[in-house]
Design a protein around this nucleic acid. Structure first.
Lengths: 341, 341
DNA sequence: GCTCCCCATGTAAACGTTTTCATGAATGCC
DNA sequence: GGCATTCATGAAAACGTTTACATGGGGAGC
């Protein structure tokens, strides 16, 4: 490397200890030596070596973020929320994505060992047990969108149940009886919770869910498009409303219906989930469930900082639920009555 | 921290050097001791401390990424491309965003000192000179979407000129004479290049640009929406086509016209720039300029790795241009003729 | 059977900080 | 004016690795 604290010390005629004290304000230093050291440091464009500092002080000033993917607005919003909170605390972000299986997560976690103070892990496709084996001891961890895992300091989850209930309620109030659902990836925790919520809400509304109205999906636009096509190709009765487990799929479905000249919301009502930024800009603007994704990320980071600040008490795992609120826009309406059709 | 290489060495009855050799395969080790060490390491769930390793080997196995922001699909795509390439090389990513001014970039760069092997910097609002003062010596740097900066190993830019030329050409061929333009942030390099490209292409098509048809914008959906509103509120003649400097603004404009019952592409043609994933899913699907944003990121990372592998030759700054290709979808058509109107 | 060499391993010195402990000077107290 | 106390500073030991160098043993070549 380049210029070290030794160089600064030598040129300022002090010991390295004093330089360190000046730079970190960790102990009182006489004013004149302070300015002298500062001047030399600036002249030399000295920047402390973070690796050495981390090693010595056992403080990395960095958070690790492990994500399953980076595709789409959901993750950029999440990351944005985390970054904002981390930056406020003067921490950097170590990001690692594309980890779908236990092995991938394990490797990513290992790579972060020693360079982060804590971990934010989102691994919606891993079972809590699998996740538990992947995470190291001795490092505070906050789990995103998954139930509290043994060994984790905290977890923050979205109120999928509340959100789905609100959606189904809204559709039923509009008069819909036949509501189809596009699932997310089969092993994704959020996706499963939303499917469960949909089923439960339908049941409690006294409606039955036709098996052919539950369509497979994968959280991508293309997946939503395909599901909508499958729905249209279906032989039986067509539903009057379609509930997609996330916004990306809802947007894809919107396109499929548009291509098929099926009017939304006239002939088909569509609802999404997440309220990604683009949701209000598609036509018709998407009725969806608002999850403040950036807030979700920020909350998680804040929880992690709390665990960091007070290392004693994170044996009691705490769980936070981020609210999910129905946002009514223009992609839903009453079902067209049969007489008109 | 927890278990160190010393613990492994002691339990395996070898020296720490041997453990290191086994774990890194950096020198031949007898097979039986190798498996013994490996077994102990696994039993102890040993994970080497990255900070120590970095300090000692002067190899961080990490790349720093400095971004102006994280909002929207552009950045998540960029990050995705970078992450993919970095992961292939076994490197982690240190991400820092929200740096709009020289000071912010300087701070971010300092925080990365010693924990990364190289830097990927996107600071489109900084002048090359300002950028030059912010970047440290001795660290390979690749600049994204900005001209080569003194001190940088390489830069990769988008072919803004080619892209804008193709757009204007396409519109002119359709018969448009009055093409408005929504600018990006005034100090953003890409935004400026696109504005320049638009003006140049209009001129070479023999068309004049009316001053009131050049609208301020900020690269956000809301900015595009506002610009479109301003256009509609304008007293004079209305253009027949609108070219937005990025997709997000085009999407916002689309909404504004939809709200005002102005048919796109019937009454107004719209073009964007970037081809973010959502572009094909809005209605009408957006004609735009495809910039493979993930490829852009991947390319930049690859360039950085090249500079890393061969530290001798990056005094000759190299520049790479990512092509920009017109993608015709459904948001453009011929202008409605006056007689019909 | 002697020498040479190679191979596996150990020893110890980096790497660049922070931090504990020691030291000496200056100050305050009686 | 001597003694306790505070205060600024320096010396040196961590922190957990990697790696240059040293060392010993065993096999090959004659």
């Amino acid at each position: 490397m380049n210029v070290t604290i030794r160089d600064v010390a030598r040129l300022a005629n002090v010991s390295v200890a004093t330089v360190s004290r000046v730079l970190n304000a960790s102990a009182p230093v006489r004013e004149d030596t302070r300015v002298r050291v500062l001047k030399v440091a600036r002249d030399l464009r000295f920047a402390p070596n973070s690796a050495a500092r981390t090693l010595s002080s056992r403080q990395a000033s960095a958070l690790g973020v492990i994500l399953p993917d980076l595709y789409g607005e959901f993750f950029s919003e999440l990351l944005r929320g985390i970054d904002l909170e981390a930056q406020r605390a003067g921490h950097s972000l170590l990001v690692s994505s594309s980890h779908h299986d236990t092995h991938g997560v394990t490797v990513a976690v290992r790579a972060m060992r020693g360079r982060v103070d804590g971990l934010l892990v989102m691994a919606p496709e891993l079972s809590p047990a699998a996740l538990a084996t992947a995470i190291p001891e001795g490092l505070p961890i906050v789990i995103l969108n998954a139930p509290p895992t043994p060994g984790a300091a905290a977890s923050v989850v979205v109120d999928n149940m509340g959100g789905t209930r609100a959606v189904v309620h809204h559709l039923v109030e509009l008069g819909h009886r036949e509501v189809a659902f596009i699932c997310g990836p089969p092993r994704n925790t959020d996706a499963r919770a939303r499917l469960r919520g949909y089923r439960a809400a339908m049941r409690s509304a006294g409606l039955t869910v036709q098996p052919e109205f539950v369509l497979p999906g994968d959280f991508t636009e293309d997946g939503g498009w395909k599901a909508a096509r499958a729905l249209m190709a279906g032989a039986g009765k067509r539903p009057t409303a379609l509930f997609a487990a996330n916004d990306a799929m809802a947007v894809g479905a919107l396109l499929a219906f548009h291509e098929a000249n099926i009017d939304v919301p006239g002939d088909m009502s569509i609802v999404g989930f997440d309220d990604i930024p683009i949701a209000r800009y598609v036509t018709p603007s998407l009725t969806t469930v608002r999850v403040a994704i950036d807030v979700l990320g920020g909350r998680a980071a804040a929880l992690l900082f709390r665990a960091l600040a007070d290392p004693v008490n994170w044996n009691e795992t705490l769980k936070e639920v981020v609210p999910a609120e129905l946002i009514v826009r223009h992609s839903c309406g009453p079902p067209r009555t049969d007489t008109i059709r």
